[in-house]
Amino acid sequence: MSAKKTNYSYIGIAFILLVFGIIFVPRIVDRIKGGDVTRTESRTKDVSTDAKGYVSDLLFLEINGEAKKVPPFSFTNHDGKTITNKDYEGKVYVVEFFFTTCPTICPRMNRNLVQIQNTFADFEDFGVASFTINPDFDTQEVLKSYADNYGITNPNWHLMTGDQEEIYALANIGFNIYAGENPNVEGGFEHSGNFALIDKNGFIRSRKDDFGNPKIYYKGIISEEEKVDEDGETEEISILKEDIAKLLKED
């Protein structure tokens, strides 16, 4: 990933369109230059009154009229086991795309995830899904060494490798989180520095921004300790922790 700080903001440009003077329709547009693929239209739906049991105030991302779920996937994790989306059923988890030789943002992202891991160490229904975008190099053995070096101990944190086209489709289409090869950037690959938050039923969830629209993803690069980076971007690890806690309370 390029080390330019302008690449830190990939998501979050929201336009509020006033229709018939009373209806606000949020449209989320991701900048390809910033990293994430442009979506046609995305809205959110608060289904707390429709669902049985407790549902938090976090929004459900709605695309083309349906709440967005994690698509089916099947890859090999750092222990050599086949992991699918079904292994995360009943768990709250964070999703990232990374690669082990990333010289810029990945180390910062994974240090933040380890901190989150340690915060929720007592919760058996919390996990992380890390997908490498350089599977040719990031074999099971390489991922295992990476996990050991970073202190990844949560049994529900799987660093996964597999077919590159399937991983890229999962990132760019399944999550609308940009990932791709680029020989002109440091490390040879570029990807979003954002995290996706998934609830126990496999739905992508997020909180509202100041305008009532979904944040959709959470900035994964800036640490809680930093608070802001040199471009004035505010950290979102603290709010991600708050929202994980909310989802863990859901039925």
Rank of each mutant, 00 (worst) to 15 (best):
D210W: 05
N156C: 06
H191F: 06
F15T: 12
E141F: 02
N112Y: 13
F189G: 00
K69S: 12
G35R: 01
C106D: 04
E165H: 09
G151P: 03
V25T: 11
S42K: 08
Q164D: 05
L143T: 06
E236D: 07
P183R: 10
I116N: 03
F175A: 06
G21S: 04
L18K: 15
S223M: 08
I204L: 15
K249S: 10
Y150I: 04
Q115Y: 09
Y8Q: 07
Y54K: 12
P107E: 11
I222Q: 02
V47D: 10
I221R: 01
I239C: 05
G232R: 04
I216F: 08
D199I: 01
T104G: 04
H191Q: 09
D138T: 08
D36A: 03
V55T: 14
F123I: 10
T132H: 10
S238Y: 10
S145K: 15
E186F: 03
T119R: 15
N154R: 08
K208G: 02
R207C: 03
K246H: 05
T40F: 14
L170Y: 01
A245I: 03
D210E: 12
S56E: 09
F123Q: 15
K86R: 14
S56T: 13
D210C: 04
E233P: 00
T38I: 07
Q140Y: 05
Q117N: 05
I177G: 01
H158C: 07
Y88C: 02
T161R: 04
N134C: 06
L248A: 09
F211N: 09
S74Y: 05
P135S: 11
S223G: 13
S48G: 07
K144D: 11
D210I: 10
T104D: 15
V70M: 14
G151A: 03
D199H: 02
I105E: 00
T44Y: 15
L58A: 03
I152C: 00
I116P: 02
K69R: 13
D30F: 13
I204W: 03
V29G: 01
L170G: 00
T49H: 14
E225D: 15
G53Y: 07
I239W: 02
D229R: 00
K219E: 10
N112E: 08
F189Q: 01
V185Y: 01
E224W: 00
P26Y: 01
S74G: 08
G21I: 02
E62W: 05
P183E: 15
D199S: 02
G90E: 08
G162Q: 07
P72V: 04
N176Q: 14
G180F: 04
G12Y: 01
N154L: 09
K249L: 15
P71D: 05
E41A: 13
G12D: 08
V47M: 11
D209F: 04
R111P: 01
V228T: 15
K144E: 10
E242N: 14
L58N: 07
T100L: 03
T234Y: 10
D138M: 12
G193H: 02
E166A: 15
R108K: 13
E242F: 11
T40Q: 13
T234Q: 09
D229H: 01
F98D: 00
I13Q: 09
F15P: 00
L247F: 10
F211P: 00
M160P: 05
G151H: 06
F73R: 06
I11V: 13
E124S: 15
Y54Q: 07
I63A: 08
I22G: 03
R207V: 02
Y54S: 07
Y178F: 11
D163E: 12
T82Q: 12
E181G: 11
P26C: 04
E165L: 11
K219P: 03
G188A: 08
C102V: 03
